[in-house]
């Protein structure tokens, strides 16, 4: 019997379950850098940062944009608790573009009532969404 090469992968957000599938591999943005998971991985847990989740399933690649969260890996199961997770094709590109411009404008204004940290995070989130959409082949005009 061939060794089991797949595992169960779930993405759960406060707005509901986003994804639940048997997958071959997952690449996720850990706080210490991107990491890959295959079936039979040692149990581990880490926090996530803003980035791209790349899932290989049935020979296809599915991309998600996430703004962070936590992930728990068990040998046959991986659970990703994301703050937000959007599948690449569902990313609202025009909204992300607008958010990017708004954040850039706020950062440039240098006025004292701008929360710089917040604006930077907003910018990072917007750029990440755009990048993931682009990786999935969405045109950004």
């Amino acid at each position: 019997m061939p060794e089991e090469k797949t595992f169960q992968f779930e993405i759960v957000t406060p707005e509901g379950k986003v994804y639940s599938e048997t997958v071959e591999s997952v690449i996720a943005p850990g706080v210490d850098g991107y990491f890959g998971v295959l079936a039979g991985h040692t149990p581990f847990m880490t926090a996530l940062k803003i980035g791209e989740i790349r899932v290989r399933t049935h020979g296809e690649t599915v991309l998600f944009a996430t703004t962070g969260g936590f992930v728990e890996v068990l040998p046959h199961r991986m659970t990703l608790l994301a703050e937000t997770a959007e599948e690449a094709s569902r990313i609202d590109v025009s909204r992300a573009l607008a958010a990017k411009e708004r954040a850039e404008k706020r950062l440039k204004s240098r006025s004292p009532d701008v929360d710089v940290e917040r604006a930077r995070l907003a910018l990072a989130r917007a750029l990440n969404r755009l990048r993931v959409a682009q990786h999935a082949g969405v045109r950004i005009g």
């Binding site: 406060p14 850990g30 706080v31 210490d32 040692t42 149990p43 581990f44 847990m45 880490t46 926090a47 969260g69 936590f70 068990l74 608790l81 703050e83």
Partner: peptide, 28 residues
Amino acid sequence: HPSEYLFEPSPQAILDPLLDRYLNVRVW
């Protein structure tokens, strides 16, 4: 509970954002 369990970077470092998140979600 698996005995072998890795935390990256460390249980303490995960605890802080996790507790924050947990509290928000609970109120939600």
